[in-house]
Design a protein around this nucleic acid. Structure first.
Lengths: 183, 183
DNA sequence: TGAGTAATTGGATGCGGTCTAACAATACCC
DNA sequence: GGGTATTGTTAGACCGCATCCAATTACTCA
C-alpha cells in the first residue's frame, strides 16, 4: 500500500475516533508510521485528505468548461457536472459527509464546502459569461449549479447507496434550476 | 478613537502597502501601538478585520430568517437580504473588494466569500425548507440568493459609488432569480 | 481616596504549514 | 556488477495564526 493510502486511512480512522480538530497531523503520521514531513509530500493540508478527490474532479471540470469556449450551452455544462460526481463512491469525503457529526466536522465542512462551491461556481460563471451573459446573472447561475452538485453529493452520501448513483440525484437537482420562482 | 478602530485602520493601511499575506498580526498591532494580545480582544482572526461587518449583518439576517418561521415567502426573504446590504458603505470589506489585487487578496477572498456565501445560503435554505420545500431545491434557492447578494456587493464595491446604493444592484440581481433557464 | 471593574499586556503553548539539506532506496545504463 | 540519476523519506529549523492565563494597568464611581 502506498504511503498516501496509508496516510489517508490513518487520518480517517483518527477523525472517526477523536474528531477532526482533536487529530493533529503528527497524530496521523505517527499512526501511519511515517514522518511528519512525509505527510506534506502527499497532501497539501490536513483537510486535503478529505477533499483532494473532489478537488481533482473540479480541476478537470474547470478545464472542460474552459474548453467549451463561447459555444457552451446549459446542456454542455450539465454534462460536465455529471462527470464530476460520476463514480465518486470510495472517497474519504463521502465518509466524512456520512459521519460529519462523529468527526466533529460540522463547522469545518461548512468552511470547506463553501470554498469548493464558490470555486466551481466561478468556473461555471466564467463559462456562462463567455457566452455573453451578464456578470451577476452568470454568478447566480454558477452558484445555483454548484449548489446543486454539492447538495446532491451531500444528500447522496448521507443516504449511503440507497439513492443509487449520485448522477441520478444530481439530474433531479439540475432539473430544479430554470424555474426557481419563489413568490 | 477606540482600539478597535485603530487596529482596523492600521490593518487596512498595511494590507494596501504590502498585501494581506505579507502583513502579520504583529505588524498590525505594532503600527496601531498596542500589544499583539489586544488584537484578539477585538478581532477573532486576521481576516475578521475585513469580514466582521458583513458577518454581523449575516448573523442578524439569519435571526430574521429564523423569525419568519414557516410563513416566510420569497418576498420576505428578499426584504431581509436588502437589509444586509443597506448602508454598507464605509467598511473594510468594501475597501478590500475594491483593491483586492493590490492587497494580493484574490485567493483569500475566494476562500472567505465562499464561507459567507454558504453560511448565508444555509440560512435561506433553512427558511425555505421550513415552508415544506424539498431539501436540495431549498439549497439551490439559498445558494442563488446568497450569490446574488455577494455578487451584487462585489460589483457595487468595484464600481465605487457609481452604481448608487447596493440595494438597487441587489434588486436587479434578485429579479434574475426565478427564471434561470439556460438551454 | 479606595474599591471594584474593564482594558491591556507579556508570555507560554500548540498547531498548521513551508523550507532545506541530507539520507535511503530504487531503477537505469554501460 | 558498478556507478549514477531519480525518487522517496527524513529530521529539524522556522514562521505565523490562534488560544489561554495570570498579572498589571487604567478607569469609574461611590
Amino acid at each position: 500500500m502506498s504511503s498516501r493510502e496509508t496516510l489517508a486511512e490513518a487520518a480517517c480512522e483518527l477523525f472517526l475516533e477523536r474528531g477532526y480538530d482533536a487529530t493533529s497531523v503528527a497524530d496521523i503520521t505517527q499512526r501511519a508510521g511515517v514522518s511528519r514531513s512525509s505527510f506534506f509530500n502527499y497532501f497539501s493540508s490536513k483537510s486535503d485528505v478529505l477533499w483532494s478527490g473532489l478537488d481533482a474532479r473540479i480541476v478537470r471540470a474547470t478545464e472542460s468548461l474552459i474548453a467549451l469556449g463561447s459555444g457552451g450551452d446549459g446542456a454542455a455544462v450539465r454534462a460536465v457536472l455529471r462527470e464530476v460526481v460520476a463514480d465518486f463512491a470510495p472517497d474519504p469525503l463521502a465518509l466524512a459527509l456520512r459521519n460529519r457529526s462523529a468527526m466533529g466536522l460540522d463547522e469545518e465542512l461548512i468552511r470547506d464546502t463553501g470554498v469548493r462551491q464558490v470555486r466551481l461556481a466561478g468556473a461555471i460563471s466564467d463559462a456562462a459569461r463567455s457566452t455573453g451573459m451578464d456578470e451577476i446573472r452568470a454568478d447566480i447561475i454558477g452558484a445555483a449549479h454548484a449548489a446543486a452538485l454539492l447538495s446532491s453529493l451531500r444528500v447522496w452520501a448521507e443516504h449511503g447507496a440507497g439513492f443509487g448513483a449520485p448522477e441520478s440525484v444530481l439530474d433531479g437537482a439540475l432539473r430544479d434550476i430554470g424555474d426557481l420562482n419563489w413568490t
